[in-house]
């Protein structure tokens, strides 16, 4: 199961498709805020992808990786998030 499995654990939610919308790339709820921060994440095959997020969801994305993903998978933070910061 990926870390992206619905954040509320159940029930219906509406999610943004992170692929190319103009708004914040947060996928667990609709966020129409303008992106101010970025996350560069590894994708299988050695490539990477960069997600643009508002500050609030950028923080939540970083925290989720530390508090959930890294607890589940034995992986270093720097292998999970290649780069992050303000735009």
């Amino acid at each position: 199961m990926s870390a992206a499995t619905s954040l509320d654990g159940s029930d219906t939610d509406i999610a943004l498709d992170g692929g190319g919308g103009p708004g914040c790339a947060w996928t667990e709820a609709v966020c129409t805020a303008a992106p101010t921060h970025f996350l560069t994440l590894p994708v299988p095959g050695g490539e990477s992808s960069t997600a643009l997020l508002c500050r609030r969801h950028w923080l939540a994305s970083l925290a989720y990786r530390i508090e959930v993903t890294m607890e589940v998978h034995p992986v270093a933070f720097d292998d999970l998030v290649l780069d992050y910061g303000e735009l």
Binding site: S6, D11, T12, I14, A15, L16, G20, P22
Partner: peptide, 27 residues
């Protein structure tokens, strides 16, 4: 009660326009 929520055709079109999708996970 945003325009993109629900099963109606208008809501579906609204989602396409805004690049929003409907997702549901049950356990």
């Amino acid at each position: 009660d945003e325009p993109w929520a629900g099963d109606g055709i208008e809501a579906q079109l609204e989602r396409v326009e805004r690049n929003i999708v409907y997702a549901d996970t049950q356990t």
